[in-house]
Design a binder for these strands. Structure first.
Lengths: 236, 236
DNA sequence: TTATTGACATTGTCCGACAATGAGCGAGGC
DNA sequence: GCCTCGCTCATTGTCGGACAATGTCAATAA
């Protein structure tokens, strides 16, 4: 079966065939994440299209994180293209209280994620959750910047669900939140008060107590939302 | 405040300035959804960039549904660009049971949406939900293709939440599902058995009984998932 | 051995040209 | 008068070529 990748609405089939051809080429070449793609001129020649058309496809792939383009250096594959890969580009209008809106969407997703993780996680995933939680606690107690560790911890939970969609969607929502939120306000350590709750959350997930884990996650999100709301009110 | 729109990962700031300029131009021109944008050549000239660079931005906007491009005719604005619009590009790897994965993500979102709708919906939104439900029932009882009416009904619920993110994300997930699912199998009327449940669902939402509405929504999704699983098994 | 520097490769951007296609307008028939 | 058909034109889609910007890597000198 020939892999196919579409980044397009049903109406906008721009570059449909070029994408398919490029996926087939990458697949035939056996390229893996980290490998460099052939130069654009060669790709265009081998696919029988102009460089502009090829570039539009590569640009679209770069936007969704499939490839990474580096001027001067080449284009490297950043994500595997196995089987069928589908891109869901969606435009979100962020208005006044839009930051809280991203949280409103994240809440059910995060809670469902910890439920699924508690229910379905493999033993190795449970170990990883514990390890990430301990990392987070060490950094937090040491007074350092715990945001990266926090993301790693939650990413471990998302990975444990076995459904990559959770991690991707939540990650994009968080990135949108950070981009809009962190820039205007300084946002040093939003939600520090939630960190201690991560230990019982992790323990509940690892022990398979889904309801308890969901409850802790809900409390964490509640505090996060309250903190975000407070900061927004203070800066109004 | 100058509106800004970014469709890019933090690393891939391709066309960042052109996007900002185009947003400012659209905003200054007072263009609304349905209006036609100036031709590409004029846009490129007014923004002081080449047509190819402008086209990359327009292509990205077309992919996320902000504009609609029509060869021969022009480019029309499809979505409003008010305040900050942020794009969330997602690349999803669709493997064997990937269709069920989209459902797994949709479930918590849909359930949360009906909860919020039952709690917060404005009276006009509640009326619209009832109207869409009645439309759906008429078409279903008449034996016609009820899929469009079904989408309209759920869209009314998403709109009633007051949070456009729900409708957008769920809509994209559904589109991904349809694109992958409808093509290989015929997918005549997947989930017909769930339609009768839409009446009590709508009544619960309109009456503000959030828990009951969430329960009906969960049952609908459960049946949908079972139907999808059955069809997949049958075609294996 | 290490730092520097230069040639080279590769992506980013621009310009121009032509093809493909849809919209709008006018001529002609009823 | 009104409708239909066909033509012209505007607009997007695609291609080719060229140059700029920049990272990589090897050759060279201290």
């Amino acid at each position: 079966m020939v892999a196919s990748l579409h980044i397009a609405s049903p109406e906008t089939r721009v570059g449909h065939d070029v994408m398919d051809g490029l996926v087939a080429l990458v697949s035939a070449e056996g390229l893996k994440p980290g490998d460099r793609l052939p130069p654009e001129t060669e790709l265009a020649r081998r696919l029988g299209v102009g460089r502009h058309r090829l570039r539009e496809v590569l640009t679209a792939w770069a936007r969704v994180g499939i490839v990474s383009r580096n001027k001067g250096a080449g284009t490297v594959l950043a994500a595997p293209i196995t089987g069928r890969t589908l891109a869901l580009p969606l435009a979100v209008t962020l208005e006044a209280e839009s930051l809280l809106r991203t949280l409103a969407v994240r809440r059910p997703l995060e809670i469902e994620a910890v439920r699924l993780a508690a229910r379905d996680a493999a033993p190795t995933s449970r170990d990883r959750i514990t390890a990430r939680m301990l990392d987070l606690m060490v950094i937090f107690d040491g007074g350092g910047d715990w945001r990266a560790a926090d993301r790693a911890f939650h990413a471990a939970i998302h990975e444990a669900t076995g459904n990559p969609l959770f991690g991707q969607i939540i990650g994009q929502l968080q990135r949108a939140f950070d981009e809009v939120y962190a820039t205007p306000f300084g946002m040093p350590q939003l939600g520090s008060s939630t960190i201690p709750m991560h230990r019982p959350l992790a323990e509940a997930v690892v022990a398979g107590r889904a309801d308890e884990a969901a409850d802790w996650m809900a409390r964490i999100l509640e505090d996060t939302e309250a903190a975000a709301r407070a900061v927004m009110e203070g800066h109004r």
